[in-house]
């Protein structure tokens, strides 16, 4: 077992992990972080997407030991401080951009990263940004609308 220290959603967390433990498993099983989800075993679905040291990654393709000393943000960090929905989350709600909710945390992380990137939020660019996140419920149409609406509302 290896000891790791990672700031997760703003809180310093210490864990003892096997070398083989994936970051997603540590976040979920040891920290009860429910944002990252597991939807595949080939890195395709993006349900486990988090930000690690400011970079968008799939936490099923990172070892927990690799994150030692770093900072991880999961979807649990997205809400406003008072617990209300942030702008993007609210747009997801307003545009019915989620159904079962299983892909949602990953979608929100990717969309957040995309919106912060400064890239133009066109239909095509939005769809391209979401390429690494699979949703089996919504058909993506409303997710794209929600993200574009969030971009328009950003002052």
């Amino acid at each position: 077992m290896t000891e790791i220290n990672v700031i997760v959603d703003g809180k310093q967390e210490t864990g003892a992990v096997q070398d083989r433990t994936l970051l997603v498993h540590w976040l979920r099983d040891s920290l009860d972080k429910r944002g990252p989800k597991i939807g595949c075993d080939t890195g395709n679905c993006g349900a486990c997407t988090v930000r690690w040291d400011g970079q968008l990654v799939k936490s099923c393709m990172v070892l927990a030991v690799q994150a030692d000393g770093g900072t991880v943000e999961t979807a649990a960090s997205l809400s406003e401080e008072d617990g209300s929905l942030n702008r993007l989350q609210q747009c997801f709600k307003d545009h019915h951009a989620l159904q079962c909710g299983y892909c949602t945390s990953g979608m929100l992380m990717t969309a957040t990263d995309f919106l912060c990137s400064g890239e133009p939020v066109t239909e095509e660019a939005t769809r391209r940004a979401l390429k690494g996140n699979v949703c089996r419920c919504t058909g993506y149409h409303n997710i794209v609308r929600a993200i574009r609406a969030a971009a328009e509302e950003t002052p």
């Binding site: 429910r34 979807a75 617990g83 709600k93 989620l98």
Partner: peptide
Amino acid sequence: PRKEDDRLLKAQGEFGDD
């Protein structure tokens, strides 16, 4: 607006493996 959404958007849903 859906009643389910807030918990799911805030990563507070409870799925099978959660």
